[in-house]
Write a protein that binds this DNA or RNA. Structure first.
Lengths: 235, 235
DNA sequence: TTTCATAAATTGGTTAACCAAAATATTTTT
DNA sequence: AAAAATATTTTGGTTAACCAATTTATGAAA
């Protein structure tokens, strides 16, 4: 899922060149939604790259919903028109790897929302899981150990309780990067870990009491220091 | 990236069973961050599944940042501990496919933010692209044609101007699903398309004038009807 | 000519053999 | 015994042959 970007086609990876060639082919042949792409073998021969490369390019475009492969039948242009196809491929080819600031910015946005939604939609079972995470986190901190993982599991539990599978997925995608970057930048020190226990408890209580505004407010406060810290760190 | 979910291990896909076995192996062998997993061939033999299935499972866990494969060397446990590893694999295995409501909810959240950020960070080049999208949309609508694609390209241009690669990526992920679902549910009729032209123009002006609050406010208004419509549609 | 059955060709997916780089074991040299 | 050089094994990645389902082409029957 990694992409290297520069403006000259020279500097694109083989896969990206193939993606661009597929786009040109769709344009040139005026392929419309539902039309069939040439077979992987033909594309392999035409573009002079191994079939595996063609497959990877197709799979990437399939991930973004632009193509659809059907076994023993063919690969088909998705139900979006030429204009959106071109625009989206442009965007995909120019996608940059996420930087830390972008990750934190997005995380805060998502978590303010998931805490609200969790307060509205949480089940009793959700509360039990969250409480477990809460206690695991407190135990680690009071034992003087690093508790970044337990911290994030609590937040993931909230995401799950928000009953929004898309936000849940996005939280899962950014979490590991956050964890590794946390270690790199030493964001959380012992002092903030202790205050974190109380802040977590307050968020939990608000969600338990089904008070969305309070949950969001407390989550915002929880992120306050992180936010300020991160915006002073370059990269 | 599709997942079928039920609570019994019986109903899990082969890949999910393999992921669960890898998790158990990490737990049982107490593998810590940086430790090497057994080779793909050994896992293939141990779990009695083809190596390709092992590879796919590893790649999925790699996508979520839990493992890291290094050529001619091995697959390594990422720099997150056992607790987070278990929690995240739980989440991954219980991930549901995104429903329409969840998609729209997330889209609105993202777009309110990207419009704010775009107002703060947009370059002159961004404005040119947005203006092009604006005019393409207007032209299609005034010609009586369907303009869902041009509509979404305008929104993607805003996402790009927000200079947040994570949100940009997320917008790209949900856009195609939104497009296809729009068609399915006939969300946009001709009338709302005409008012859309003016709403787009207003958002563009606010971003051009670098007024984040106004941009967000106008984006919110733009989504008002969609929001109400979607929350009355089941699934 | 049309329709249906049959056979050949084409499709994406899968598998097993292969590759080069890396890691390890062995041998040789000092 | 230690160090260096060499051979072997192991690794994830790649490729080409293979597979079963599908589609298309062909021909026989109506």
């Amino acid at each position: 899922m990694k992409v290297e970007i520069l403006n000259l086609m020279e500097n694109y990876s083989v896969q990206e060149k193939v993606i661009d060639k597929i786009r040109k082919l769709i344009n040139h042949k005026n392929l419309e939604p539902g039309d069939k792409l040439p077979s992987e073998r033909m594309l392999s021969e035409k573009f002079e790259v191994p079939r595996s490369t063609i497959r990877e390019a197709i799979q990437k475009l399939e991930f973004y919903g632009l193509l659809k492969s059907i076994p023993q039948s063919g690969t088909f242009v998705a139900n979006i028109g030429v204009v959106a196809m071109n625009g989206m491929i442009d965007d995909i080819l120019s996608l940059e790897d996420p930087d830390f600031k972008s990750l934190v910015e997005t995380r805060i946005l998502l978590e303010l929302k998931t805490s609200r939604l969790a307060a509205l939609r949480r089940t009793e079972e959700d509360l039990v899981i969250m409480k477990d995470c809460l206690e695991a986190y407190a135990a680690k901190v009071e034992n003087g150990e690093d508790a970044v993982q337990e911290d994030l599991l609590f937040h993931l539990a909230i995401a799950r309780a928000s009953r929004n599978s898309t936000m849940n997925t996005f939280m899962l995608i950014i979490t590991p990067e956050i964890i590794t970057n946390f270690g790199k930048y030493h964001v959380c020190d012992k002092a903030s870990a202790y205050s974190g226990i109380e802040e977590h408890r307050l968020i939990y209580e608000a969600i338990k009491d089904q008070d969305p505004q309070l949950a969001k407010k407390r989550m915002k406060k929880h992120f306050n220091e992180l936010y300020k810290y991160c915006y002073n760190v370059e990269l």
